[in-house]
């Protein structure tokens, strides 16, 4: 069906979710009180804001991922062409991985992969 299928799929997902939520809205009774609107924290009112500047530990991995993922995208065309290129492809990828890996080892040595 081609690229149109993507639009069909998105529409299908949105319709499905919307219909499900709408049906649920229609068949359920909704009451509102103050306690219902509280954030769930084991039954105790929450203290302090939950939207804070968060520990950097999680983001470090996202940064390193970004570098690696770009390299990964470069690998796709290479992977398709390996069979035609032959030995040159292997040599090339060894060099490529060597550079990538030394970068990885550097990050590791610097402690970027250690959880803080």
């Amino acid at each position: 069906m081609g690229a149109a299928s993507l639009i069909v799929l998105i529409i299908a997902a949105v319709t499905f979710s919307t219909i499900a939520i709408l049906i649920a809205k229609v068949v359920t009774e909704s009451t509102k009180n103050k306690q219902k609107g509280e954030a769930i924290e084991c039954g105790i009112p929450t203290k302090g804001p939950s939207w804070i500047q968060f520990n950097v530990g999680y983001y470090l991995f996202a940064l390193i991922f970004l570098i690696f993922d770009v390299e990964l995208v470069f690998l796709y065309p290479w992977a398709v062409a390996v069979k035609q290129t032959g030995w040159m492809a292997l040599i090339e990828i060894v060099i490529f991985f060597f550079i990538l890996f030394s970068g990885f080892l550097y990050a590791h040595k610097k402690g970027a992969l250690k959880w803080v």
């Binding site: 359920t28 009774e29 609107g37 509280e38």
Partner: peptide, 9 residues
């Protein structure tokens, strides 16, 4: 389906 969907304040 029959459970109430809530949004916290």
């Amino acid at each position: 389906l029959v459970k109430e969907g809530m949004t916290p304040d």
